[in-house]
Design a protein around this nucleic acid. Structure first.
Lengths: 342, 342
DNA sequence: CTGTTAGCGCCTTCAT
DNA sequence: ATGAAGGCGCTAACAG
């Protein structure tokens, strides 16, 4: 026979009738308008309770042209770094009575384009975009989005959009330097897919750290995942490189690299020292723990959300702002050949 | 000066004007109604393109009383098992032109209540709920939800709601039996928080597997997290239990347990064999790899989504349906004392 | 095949 | 302090 969901929800009109008031008064009470007598307020509130009234989000959105929803678009929600950004963003949204939608595009340009295009439907008030492959088409799409957009990560220089970057290049440089200081003779890099922005900047930083004369082996993984890191490292080791230190472009790759090394009987950090990037949750759950460059995704998620709210709530309406956070090398056991850290 | 977002989006009215048609015709074209002449269709489509028209989601929702959004409510989005459910659910949603909202409640009853209450706003067409602590109040709330709800996990017997369970008790039993077969003399359990449903059923299964005469040590972690698993295991080992096998109530706890063992110099699986539950991504990223009971969260996410769509799209309107999936023990290195598996 | 129109539920001037 | 009424953008009758 079906559930009792048949009883359709009360509207503001029903509440008004029940309270012997006008819809306007009910609306005022609902929205905390001062200009209502205490008795009226009491009657309306009682009526709301009695009718189990809840405002209709669609009607409010249509009328108020605001949805109280924001969206986070990431490439792969399996990546713990994005999960951290998501979490802080969700907390922020909640503090402001907003909801968070999550779209995972799996690095498919088509998906990202579709998501950005759908923004025209205005089902969200704004978007935080964490994308690694800014193709030309997406760039163009971003020139005039229907709602505010804030990018987490490196936005191309010619794209005019708010962004919260991190000095990944500097972080990679520091990591490479650290590996040298640990006495690693040959240092290699397990990088991300060639066509991604992070791969570019992190490789630059890696080379910065090793100096212009070095010609270090670099392999590119097919994705920023454990499996891809494992496969890429296998290729690297099979090539006979025999590195004493490896910088991985993110922690997921580093975990894959760690496992590849372990499975070959290499001792970490004695035979080979490892450094990852992101300092995500992954870094603490392996043994040895992973040295990693903290790219502060949680902070950046919140910062991005704040910039977005500035736009949404009209507090800021100027030229695109580019924020950048400091990065920090967190040394743990995977690279500590002195023997101090765990 | 601000961006060019000032140009407000075209409505169906301007498209109609531009095409020299009525709004009805435009609406028909938009919705694939057959009863329009090819010329009309062409004109309207051109006008849509020229005006860069995109339908307004709020107006459609208000009119059609459907939002094309569903929501996933989980306790902790940091748990990879939920991430898997989320992923498959998002894929399903996308296939049906729907969007997914994610709410992470961190096990706060207040948050869950609020989320369930907000459903009255009808900002989503339905909800998939993955909750571990069904308090009485939530149970009551669930008695008459504003939109369809499907539960992933064990719904209490007296709650009338669609659900997709897994035979966790049977899985735990199988895991305990497996540990016995591996020759573990003393077997302990690192369980989840006492007041959670999974903790109960998994403990039952664990006891089933060890037999009625056993009185195994059981510690309860404060949460289903790595850190809590580490802490609980430390307590267990400090108590002098010296188990040769440990069943952990989920993979996150198991990772924590693994690290606690490693940090104490215990060899896994030789000194102590470990089994987790969920068979999430975590199980494959540690060394040794984690033996785990597959609770099939990805499958269950999709199944839950399908049951939800059945309700939303009116294909099913009967009594609550309870599905349950089989579980499967996946043996890996952490418990393999024979020496076969990796 | 095409157009006109009512109304989804709400907020907000504008009057009183 | 309260009420009446228009309209947000769209779809689905209903009329022609």
């Amino acid at each position: 026979m079906g559930t009792s969901r048949g009883t359709k929800p009360a509207t503001i009109g029903v509440v008004a009738a029940r309270a012997g008031a006008s819809v306007a008064s009910v609306s005022r009470v609902l929205n905390g308008d001062e200009r209502v007598s205490p008795e009226m307020r009491a009657r309306v509130e009682a009526a709301c309770r009695e009718t189990d009234y809840t405002p209709n989000a669609a009607a409010r959105s249509l009328r108020g042209r605001t949805t109280r929803q924001i969206s986070l678009v990431v490439e792969d929600i399996g990546n713990p770094a994005y999960v951290e950004a998501m979490r802080s963003l969700q907390d922020l949204a909640r503090e402001h009575g907003m909801r968070l939608l999550v779209e995972s595009t799996y690095g498919q340009l088509e998906e990202e384009l579709k998501v950005m295009h759908d923004l025209g439907e205005r089902y969200v008030d704004g978007v935080v975009l964490a994308s690694t492959r800014f193709a030309d088409r997406l760039t163009r799409e971003l020139r005039n989005p229907a709602v505010p957009v804030v990018v987490i990560g490196s936005a191309p220089r010619d794209v005019q959009v708010d962004s919260v970057g991190a000095d990944a290049r500097g972080g990679a440089r520091e990591a490479a330097t650290h590996l040298r200081e640990q006495g690693c003779a040959r240092i290699a890099m397990v990088n991300g897919p060639v066509d991604t922005l992070p791969a570019t900047s992190r490789l630059e930083g890696f080379r910065d750290g090793l100096g212009p004369d070095a010609d270090p082996p670099v392999v590119h993984a097919e994705a920023f995942t454990h499996a891809a890191g494992y496969a890429a490292t296998t290729r690297l080791l099979d090539s006979g490189a025999a590195p004493e230190g490896i910088l991985c472009a993110n922690d997921q790759l580093a975990i894959g690299t760690l496992n590849a090394c372990v499975d070959r009987g290499l001792r970490v950090p004695d035979d080979v020292a490892l450094v990852g990037m992101d300092n995500s949750r992954d870094a603490g759950i392996c043994r040895p723990r992973l040295t990693s460059v903290d790219l502060r995704f949680a902070d950046r998620g919140r910062l991005a959300g704040q910039m977005l709210l500035d736009r949404i709530q009209g507090r800021y309406d100027g030229a695109p702002r580019r924020q950048s956070v400091y990065t920090e090398l967190v040394v743990r056991g995977s690279s500590d050949r002195g023997g101090a850290a765990a």
